[in-house]
């Protein structure tokens, strides 16, 4: 019996090669779970299939094997219970900011009155500080503002699970920082269960409870689950002072620089077995153990 909020069991994704003779495996034997209210980040090198996993979770793309269950129901197609914030914001350019959000609300709350829909949209647009721009078209907005519309749209439909595909990847550092603060604030308030893909290690530590690390592709795996043991609510300017921060950060950097390719190599050699993945790692304990010469219990 498995009562996780979301459980991913041994999923894989492969495409036929161009000549049609063989298959390319993007990732395989990927298993992890998400509890209600958790914030999970997925980190890995480009091309290891992070976005594919997210699309699979969203139901936009089918998996080749394994199963994804959310609240004990198989994920087969997209659902309003799984909101997606896309990498390139995907705001509909022919609608105003307000209409972009009301359209989504209308899809979710079909019986809601027009006034309620509008006030709900206004509430969420205010939450991302866009109240002065609701009648603008997306082309009149900056990249960061567009992404905020995407955030408002996703939160306004109150999905059980929020999926974010490198939401701030295309933004400059300043805007990204501001949006991260906003996201921390909103998530603390709503306890939104979230799965997020990012390239940004600091962003991952700031936001997540657990960080999933992927080994290099093709045939990528989720190799490790890193526990981020820093109390919430967190704050972007103060989190760096927490003693655990650099321990976790260094661990993540080491994984991305050295271990991610090593894991792929070990799997090929058979010195590391799929059934042992993902390893759960708490970098703080690990460091403590190392410093005190405690061998793995």
């Amino acid at each position: 019996m498995n009562h996780n909020f979301l459980s991913v069991n041994n999923i894989s994704k492969s495409y036929p090669t161009k000549d049609g003779k063989g298959f390319i495996t993007i990732y395989e034997n990927v298993s992890f779970s998400i509890e209600k209210g958790e914030f999970i980040c997925l980190i890995g090198h480009s091309g290891c299939g992070k976005s594919t996993i997210l699309n699979n979770l969203a139901g936009l793309n089918s998996i080749s094997g394994g199963s994804i269950k959310m609240q004990d129901e198989e994920v087969e197609k997209p659902s309003l219970e799984r909101g997606v914030i896309f990498q390139n914001h995907s705001i509909l350019p022919w609608l105003t900011v307000l209409k972009n959000v009301t359209m989504a609300i209308k899809c979710k709350f079909k019986t809601m009155s027009k006034e309620d829909i509008e006030s709900r949209a206004n509430y969420f647009l205010k939450m991302v500080n866009l109240e002065d721009h609701i009648h603008k078209k997306p082309s009149e907005l900056s990249g960061g503002m567009k992404q905020r519309v995407g955030i408002a749209r996703a939160f306004a439909i109150e999905p059980s699970l929020l999926l974010m595909d490198e939401p701030f990847g295309a933004l400059d550092a300043l805007t990204r920082g501001k949006l991260q603060d906003k996201l921390v604030e909103i998530c603390d308030k709503t306890k939104q269960t979230t799965f997020m893909i990012t390239h940004d290690i600091d962003e991952a530590i700031l936001l997540s409870d657990k960080i999933l690390l992927m080994s290099d592709g093709p045939e990528a795996r989720v190799a490790e689950t890193v526990i981020v043991d820093i109390p919430k609510p967190r704050n972007r300017s103060q989190i760096v002072n927490h003693p655990a921060y650099y321990v976790i950060r260094n661990y993540l950097v080491d994984f991305l620089v050295n271990q991610s390719s090593l894991v792929a190599k070990k799997l090929k050699e058979g010195t590391l077995l799929d059934k042992d993945l993902p390893l759960t790692v708490d970098p703080i304990k690990l460091k403590y153990n190392l410093e005190n010469n405690i061998i793995n219990p």
């Binding site: 969203a58 936009l60 197609k77 997209p78 659902s79 309003l80 799984r82 909101g83 997606v84 896309f86 390139n88 995907s90 509909l92 022919w94 609608l95 359209m103 989504a104 899809c107 979710k108 439909i157």
Partner: peptide, 27 residues
Amino acid sequence: TDFLNVGKTLEMNSFKMAFTIILPAAL
């Protein structure tokens, strides 16, 4: 595809998708 994905994640049926996403995008 991004626009279509927006419609899909909002559980639009093909009819609604045609008129709220595809038609305005293609106009």
